[in-house]
C-alpha cells in the first residue's frame, strides 16, 4: 500500500481547534525540557549529598547513603514512577492525598515525574560523585585537614572542585539520559514529546511524519546538550590535570 506523505499536516489546525499540530509538538517539547531540567537539579543536589556521604568516615551515614543508592538503582524507573503516581497519594493522610489528587492533573503528573526522575537519577549521580572523590589522591584530603580546614571545608574547597571536573564526562551522559528517561512520563499521561507522538498518530493518521518529527526533536536535544557540555568541559579544564591534555 502506498503511503501518502503529508508534511503539511503540522500546519493544520487540530480537529479540537485548540492549536496546530505543530503547536502540539512544541508543547510536548516544552514539557520534556522542563521536566528534564527540573529533575536534573534535584538529581545534582541530592546526588552530590548522597555521593559525599558515601565517602565520609562514618559507618551509619555511609551505610544509609549506600542503601539509598541501591534502592533507587535496583527498581525499574517505570515501577518507581507508578509508585510515586498511583501508590503514594493513597498512602498519604487522606486529606493531603485528596488535595494532591484534586489538583490540576498536569501538575500531578509533572510533580510525580519530576520527583521520580530526580531521585532515580540522583542515585546514579551519587555513584559518579563517589568514584570521583575516591579517584583523588588521598594526600589531598590529608593536606586539606593539615591546613586546618574542617572536613566539610575540605570537601567544599579541595575535593569537590576536582571531583566535579573528573566526573564531568559521565555526568554529561547522565544528563542526556534524563532527557531520554523523561519519555517514561508518557505512561502517566504527561503530554511530553513521546505522548504527543502517539496523539498525533491518533489524530492525524500520519504516523510516519509524527514519529519522524519527534525522533528528530530528541536527536536535536541530544546534540544541543552534548555541544553545551563540551563547551563547559573546555571552560573548567585544569591545565596539567585529567582532561587538561
Amino acid at each position: 500500500m502506498a503511503y501518502n506523505w503529508n508534511w503539511e499536516v503540522f500546519l493544520q489546525p487540530s480537529v479540537t481547534g485548540d492549536d496546530t499540530y505543530l503547536g502540539w509538538l512544541l508543547t510536548g517539547l516544552k514539557w520534556t525540557v522542563s521536566l528534564s531540567l527540573s529533575a536534573w537539579v534535584i538529581a545534582l543536589v541530592l546526588g552530590t549529598i548522597v555521593g559525599v556521604l558515601r565517602t565520609v568516615p562514618n559507618r551509619w551515614l555511609s551505610g544509609l547513603a549506600t542503601a539509598y543508592v541501591e534502592l533507587f538503582r535496583n527498581i525499574p524507573l517505570l515501577v518507581q514512577l507508578f509508585i510515586w503516581y498511583f501508590v503514594l497519594p493513597e498512602l498519604l493522610p487522606p486529606a493531603l492525598g485528596d488535595a494532591f489528587k484534586q489538583s490540576h492533573p498536569l501538575w500531578q503528573q509533572f510533580f510525580s515525574a519530576m520527583v521520580c526522575l530526580g531521585l532515580f537519577t540522583s542515585a546514579r549521580v551519587a555513584e559518579q560523585v563517589r568514584s570521583g572523590i575516591n579517584s583523588l589522591p588521598r594526600g589531598q584530603k590529608a593536606a586539606g585537614l593539615a591546613m586546618g580546614f574542617t572536613l566539610p571545608q575540605v570537601y567544599r574547597h579541595v575535593l569537590m572542585p576536582m571531583a566535579y571536573r573528573i566526573i564531568l564526562p559521565p555526568l554529561t551522559s547522565e544528563f542526556l539520559n534524563i532527557f531520554k528517561n523523561s519519555a517514561v512520563a508518557t505512561t502517566i499521561g504527561l503530554i511530553e514529546l513521546s505522548r504527543q507522538a502517539q496523539q498525533l498518530v491518533d489524530y492525524t493518521a500520519q504516523p510516519y511524519e509524527a514519529f519522524i518529527a519527534v525522533t528528530v526533536l530528541y536527536v536535536l536535544i541530544n546534540v544541543t546538550v552534548m555541544f553545551l557540555m563540551r563547551r563547559l568541559e573546555e571552560k573548567v579544564r585544569v591545565p596539567g590535570f585529567i582532561g587538561g591534555k
Binding site: F179, K180, A183, V184, T186, S194, T215, Y218, V219, V223
Partner: peptide
C-alpha cells in the same frame, strides 16, 4: 539519542 519508549513504539 532516542528514548527507549520511542524505539519500542516505533
Amino acid at each position: 539519542s532516542v528514548p527507549l519508549v520511542m524505539v519500542i513504539l516505533w
